[in-house]
């Protein structure tokens, strides 16, 4: 195969994409996972509690509840999130993208915080990301590529954690992605938003919850000449079912 990565043919996993009021990457995630990558996908309404037997939950990007109060702060209290938190605590796979990452932090499923970008401006552009951990189920098997090219689009993506949390993240190999140069050089010059240590994505200790600011769902379709995002989705599916 090409850059889409290899695909397990064993079983079709079911994805559930949560729809909060103000989610605006929900349809993009659905399209990428269902129409392009051909997985089964259900939308999950924020007022419901049924996860519809999903194997993987996606918390999509957007501005849930208008991002009023604080990004992700209100979404965290929606009925569906109680189910998502239970699901995650039992080892279920959850991927929070952009606003979804912010919600995961508010829900306490991941440590740290996302502050306003250091420029105080919204930033939308393609960035390079160095994959820092190839052992996680979200990244294991991504061959050939050490650097992913994915878009970011956020106003609050400046990752912060206190010293102890950072140390823990590093010690446990929980940092999955860092902003980098095209060749994988992680330095301040390639940090788009002021994130601590260029952190762009982290997993929980158990390795079943990933939060990331870049948008893999925007990078699955050859028509848009961007496909690196599919590497993450396909890696996850292969790793869960192999």
């Amino acid at each position: 195969m090409d850059s889409f990565g290899e695909r397990s043919e064993m079983r079709k996993p079911k994805f559930g994409v949560v729809v909060f009021p103000g989610s605006n990457c929900d349809h993009d995630a659905f399209y990428a996972l269902h129409k392009v990558l051909e997985f089964d996908v259900n939308f999950l309404w924020h007022k419901d509690t049924d996860l519809k037997e999903s194997d993987v939950i996606i918390l999509p990007g957007g501005f849930s509840y208008g991002d009023y109060l604080r990004t992700g702060a209100i979404a965290r209290f929606s009925p569906i999130m109680n189910s998502v938190i239970d699901f995650a605590n039992k080892g279920g796979y959850v991927l929070g993208i952009c606003n979804g990452f912010q919600i995961l932090l508010e829900a306490g499923l991941l440590p740290g915080a996302l502050l306003q970008n250091i420029s105080l401006k919204f930033i939308c552009k393609d960035v390079y990301l160095s994959v820092e951990n190839y052992e996680s189920n979200f990244t294991k098997g991504i061959k050939d590529k050490i650097v992913l090219n994915l878009p970011i689009a956020h106003g609050d993506g400046n990752f912060f954690a206190d010293e102890n949390t950072l140390k823990e993240l590093e010690d446990n190999n929980q940092i999955i992605l860092r902003y980098s140069s095209k060749s994988g050089n992680v330095s301040n010059e390639f940090n788009p938003n002021g994130s601590l240590k260029n952190i762009a994505g982290i997993i929980n200790k158990n390795g079943n919850v990933l939060g990331m600011m870049p948008h893999p769902e925007r990078s699955c379709n050859r028509i848009l000449a961007k496909t690196d995002g599919s590497l993450i989705f396909n890696a996850l599916v292969n790793n869960i079912y192999n």
């Binding site: 605006n24 990457c25 993009d28 990007g61 939308c124 878009p151 689009a153 000449a225």
Partner: peptide, 24 residues
């Protein structure tokens, strides 16, 4: 234009910076 989300809805084949935008 970097302050604008030019890619949401995943249809943007040619975004800002060229002669015209192209939307799938």
């Amino acid at each position: 234009y970097e302050q604008y989300d030019s890619m949401v809805r995943t249809n943007t084949i040619v975004g800002p910076g060229c002669d015209a935008a192209v939307i799938y």
